[in-house]
């Protein structure tokens, strides 16, 4: 083989270094680096700070005892009830949001007719996504204080409806998770190639069984990601808890039916516990606030990690 006829290949190694770029490019390049490293530093310092403070104050005792009334910090107990409250509320909000979010996304992507209604629904969800949670909270309070919603919370002696309970807070919380679940499901569905749908129709399948058996399983990793993001947002939200959950430290049941009494009752979550115990709140017990915040952070991180793992595993099953 002769190489003489070929034009010489010149590797201009070292020529295209950052130094040879125009000044504006170089500035932008280093700015990107700075921002990236800066974000890492913020995340690292947040976790290290919480680790430091948290590990200092957190104890099994604190996690497994309920808040109590006392004049001394040593008597006011731990945050078992708020921890449970976070679990209940997150679960409740997610359970309501998943069918709504997934259903709406399926409708938009697979049906989407009339087009005007589809557009309206999409902008409606954008509005919900952009609504500050305190507005959702106050709106929920207004809504659920109506007589017809008495079954969701409690009725005071005078006949006024409280409107505050795990149920009412859970419903409003679902609106926080809904846009996230909707968006990621919609994107996952849009990524399913048209030929996969066609293949299903060509096998004599109806649209509905195509959606159930092919499209939703294919979109599952996306649905899971959206759900994880939504759960994280619910677990971290404070405004709706303070307004709609009643902010009683203990879980106060309403009625005597098992489960339902808890759901109709009021309580607290880790976020409201942190708020109340921080120097800004009434308790003024920063150590407990730090400990609870630490546990909350761990929970949300573990949640993200777990769902990431799960969606990766589902992806592996199908691809």
């Amino acid at each position: 083989m002769s190489t003489s006829s070929r034009p010489d290949v010149v590797h201009r190694r070292g020529k295209d270094t950052v130094k040879s770029w125009p000044l504006a490019d170089r500035i932008a390049y280093y700015a990107c680096w700075a921002v990236g490293i800066g974000l890492c530093l913020v995340a690292a310092s947040l976790i290290l700070f919480m680790l430091n403070k948290g590990l200092q104050y957190v104890s099994l005792d604190l996690i497994f005892s309920n808040p109590a009334v006392g004049s001394d910090q040593s008597q006011t107990g731990g945050f078992l009830a708020p921890l449970l409250g976070t679990f209940i509320l997150t679960l409740l909000g997610t359970i309501i949001a998943i069918p709504l979010g997934v259903g709406t996304a399926v409708w938009i992507v697979e049906y989407g007719r009339p087009a005007r209604l589809a557009r309206a629904v999409e902008s409606g969800i954008e509005v919900v996504a952009g609504t500050p949670s305190i507005v959702l909270g106050i709106f929920g309070l207004l809504l659920f204080s109506n007589g017809i919603f008495a079954f969701m919370s409690f009725r005071a002696l005078g006949g006024a409806v409280g409107g505050r309970s795990f149920l009412t807070a859970g419903v409003m919380m679902s609106f926080i998770a809904l846009p996230l679940i909707f968006t990621s499901t919609r994107e996952a569905l849009q990524q399913v190639p048209a030929q996969v749908r066609e293949a299903s129709y060509a096998l004599g399948k109806t649209k509905w069984s195509t959606i159930r058996k092919v499209l939703i399983p294919t979109a599952r990793p996306g649905i899971l990601t959206g759900t994880a993001l939504g759960m994280g947002r619910i677990a971290g939200d404070t405004a709706i808890v303070v307004i709609l959950l009643g902010a009683t430290m203990q879980i106060e049941k309403v009625g005597s039916a098992p489960l339902v009494s808890t759901l109709r009752g009021s309580g607290s979550t880790l976020t409201s516990y942190v708020y109340n115990n921080s120097p800004a709140g009434e308790g003024n017990a920063p150590q407990k606030a730090y400990a609870a915040a630490f546990v909350l952070l761990l929970l949300v991180l573990a949640l993200n990690f777990g769902i990431d793992l799960l969606s990766r595993r589902t992806k592996k099953e199908i691809v």
């Binding site: 293949a199 092919v214 399983p217």
Partner: peptide, 10 residues
């Protein structure tokens, strides 16, 4: 079809 289009399942 022209493009192999198996479903993302087993």
């Amino acid at each position: 079809f022209q493009q192999p289009n198996p479903f993302p399942m087993s």
